[in-house]
């Protein structure tokens, strides 16, 4: 494993990005970061700027307006970076699959490393997803 990736897994800084979600996934993500679940004790910290982030937490079904901004933001993340799709919308666009404003799923816009299904996923599921992702990357 490269030194960069090893350093990344020690304390991944996450950037939270909502691409037109209904905000339930955002609330659950926020629950993970606040004292009850407190994933900061594992070194996971919410970054204020995309240029400080190692992991991109994406929620929502990627509409036409936000897809362009998503691409621009993905270009600004320092590489290597990991992308996590939270919620059913990022996986399959959920019930918005036939919407005029959601033409393609998330993985046709940027590469995605892990999906956390659920509508919305519980904070436990989000933590489990992050742990699985770290394990996967750690094993190479």
């Amino acid at each position: 494993m490269s030194l960069k990736l090893k350093a990344l897994l020690k304390s991944p800084w996450v950037f939270h990005l909502a691409t037109g979600s209904c905000n339930n996934c955002d609330i659950e993500t926020l629950d993970c970061l606040t004292p009850r679940f407190d994933i900061e004790r594992f070194g996971i910290l919410l970054a204020g700027s995309i240029k400080h982030a190692d992991v991109l937490l994406v929620t929502g079904s990627c509409n036409r307006m936000s897809a362009e901004r998503l691409k621009v933001l993905y270009e600004q993340v320092p590489k290597p970076c990991l992308v996590v799709g939270i919620g059913s919308c990022t996986g399959s666009r959920g019930l918005f699959i036939d919407s005029y404003n959601c033409p393609v799923p998330l993985d046709h816009i940027i590469p995605v490393d892990a999906y956390i299904p659920g509508c919305p996923p519980k904070p436990e599921a989000i933590i489990a997803g992050v742990v699985k992702l770290i394990d996967k990357v750690g094993k190479g």
Binding site: S92, I97, D98, Y100, P103, V104, H108
Partner: peptide
């Protein structure tokens, strides 16, 4: 009477 105009849109879950 709206119909799909975008040829690049994907409407299956794969």
């Amino acid at each position: 009477d709206y119909t799909e105009w975008d040829d690049t849109a994907i409407r299956t879950r794969g």
